[in-house]
Nucleic acid binder design. Structure first.
Lengths: 341, 341
DNA sequence: CTGAAAGCGCTTACAG
DNA sequence: CTGAAAGCGCTTACAG
């Protein structure tokens, strides 16, 4: 494996000069540059990144911390992020965490060991950030949770407005004539810190404002963002609240599991129960029935996050907080029951 | 950020001794070990991995190269792999490639730049391996494609028998009374090198052996492993071959897309058209209808691959080739049309 | 514009 | 059992 020394020897220049052409320093003669580039090409030489990083104050590539490894929505964003990194010639490293891991502690560990030059959190819990993000010094972006209220100068965030998205979802169901609506997803025993908390609270807002009949004990079932969990939750919910006409699942994976749960309870979607999801993963457009959902702009979430980080890596920009649009996508899974009444 | 120098200074020992306790060398006095470990703990010190790797002949963590970034089946395997790595205290790095990228060239690049100590290929094309795998010197495992025939001593493989799996799938459809079967997935214009090629050829074997009515031009449609591609392929296939009673989609994602395509063509699954998938991703068990598929043992694929690599990293074992079981999972998406005749 | 030299944080023979 | 020193592959002032 060729090293910088080999290139120096072969080209007849010193390793210092070789290093300069590698790093595109201006102070190199055209002649030297040409000669050295030729040798680099013929040897198929690439700098050993360990050595490079050791010198460059020890910075390794940006790391994306993905919270929840079977999360199709996150995976879609991740895919787009990688494209943007690639286009900009930046390496990325990806680490997957459990859905209920403490991502900030994991990031601190990672900073100590590998010294990434930047971090992207795909999913996160604000409570963990509040507790210990101060120990992180590199530029970071929190994606899908708003960090505007956090007092950190090195933490940007890119999100949709989950509270409003959930409000819109419930209002959409109401507009279709639904008055008894159940909710699946998230949990009640956490402080306001995660996506699910915001979506839940948005939904509750509408119920309160419109003085709708909604009882947390009866009309709500907690669920993780998984098919299995959505399935079980739907079955439990139907037993507790047999009179609901619609279910708002706060994630599309939950909605998919819920639909199977509803069917296995002997009911039909949407004839007996309408189902609305959240996120807008690709599969909602192919399911039978097609699933109504709150679509987030996945591409925009990815591009904004990566570009913000890249800018801050190169220039001393301050962290920013972006809100990305969402949109209600009607679908076959929600029935308009207005006329029936 | 504490360095080994700080630990040496604080503990009163030399950096050499500190290094020895970090790496669990035997030749350290109990007293020194205790003292140094205490300082390490109190400083929350972790070795800078760039420096470590620079020295250790420059080896960075194992890298998993995932071919196709929206591949739910691969993602499930990846998840299990990460668990096994974690249990064994090994770091992993993940890189995603396009479905039709040349994974071997990508790996060569990666070896030059980052010097991973081992590689796992999640998906791959044997033709690329044949062309250039010889340039790779670290231990590697190819997962989901059999490399038994390849002449490489540092390449293990862990697969199911895709040819046989496809044979079993077709035989299952035949046992349910289907005689006119269409196939979606893969392509015709490649040499035998990828998963899709093996599955396709397994299916064709049965058609030939049983002298069934099957015409590649009429009864086959190429497709990538995606919802969209499966959808389009199913619609085209139904136009060309309106008399088929079943479709074998050589991947579950293709099957899911195909079902929507069938429905949008005005037909019902399974009443008009039965659909059989391949892989056994979680969602097949939650879809409506539940999807009949060839289930691969995802957990076993993951565990075998990682354990084989870890063994070979520590001991000079030779590469091995494992065949993992598969099993036909009946499902609501396939109708038994025997009695109808 | 170029080279010689110091140093990034670590490991590992080599002495003792 | 321990320390001093060389060296991994690179970058970057410092001279010239």
């Amino acid at each position: 494996m060729a090293t910088i020394k080999d290139i120096a020897r072969l080209s007849g220049y010193s390793i210092g000069t070789v290093s300069r052409v590698i790093n595109h320093h201006p102070d190199v003669s055209e002649k030297a540059r040409k000669a050295i580039e030729a040798v680099i090409a013929s040897e198929n030489y690439k700098p050993n990144s360990n050595a490079v990083q050791l010198k460059n104050t020890g910075y390794s590539p940006v790391t994306v911390l993905v919270k929840g490894s079977r999360n199709v929505f996150f995976e879609s964003i991740l895919e787009d992020m990688q494209k943007v990194f690639r286009e900009n010639g930046e390496e990325v490293s990806v680490a997957f965490l459990d859905e209920d891991a403490n991502e900030v502690e994991a990031a601190i560990q990672l900073c100590v060991q590998r010294r990434p030059k930047g971090l992207i959190f795909l999913g996160g819990n604000l409570n963990y950030f509040e507790e210990s993000f101060e120990k992180i010094e590199v530029p970071a972006v929190l994606v899908t949770v708003d960090a505007e209220e956090m007092p950190f100068e090195n933490l940007s965030s890119v999100t949709t407005d989950d509270t409003k998205g959930a409000r819109d979802a419930i209002e959409y169901l109401v507009s279709q004539g639904h008055e008894r609506i159940g909710i699946i997803g998230g949990s009640l025993d956490t402080d306001l810190g995660q996506i699910s908390d915001f979506r839940l609270s948005g939904a509750l807002e509408v119920f309160n404002r419109q003085k709708m009949n909604f009882d947390l004990d009866r009309d709500f079932e907690p669920s993780k963002f998984s098919l299995e969990s959505g399935y079980e939750a739907a079955r439990r919910l139907l037993k507790k609240a047999p009179d609901i006409t619609a279910i708002f699942a706060i994630g599309d994976m939950i909605a998919l599991g819920a639909i199977r749960g509803i069917v296995d309870s002997g009911k039909k979607v949407p004839d007996d129960i309408s189902v609305m999801g959240y996120d807008g993963i690709e599969y909602t457009r192919y399911a039978v029935p097609r699933i109504a959902t709150v679509r987030q702009d996945i591409h925009e979430l990815a591009v904004r996050s990566v570009e913000d980080l890249l800018w801050r890596l190169s220039y001393h920009r301050v962290a920013q907080h972006f809100i990305i649009d969402h949109e209600i996508i009607p679908g076959e899974s929600v029935k308009n029951i207005r006329e029936e009444k």
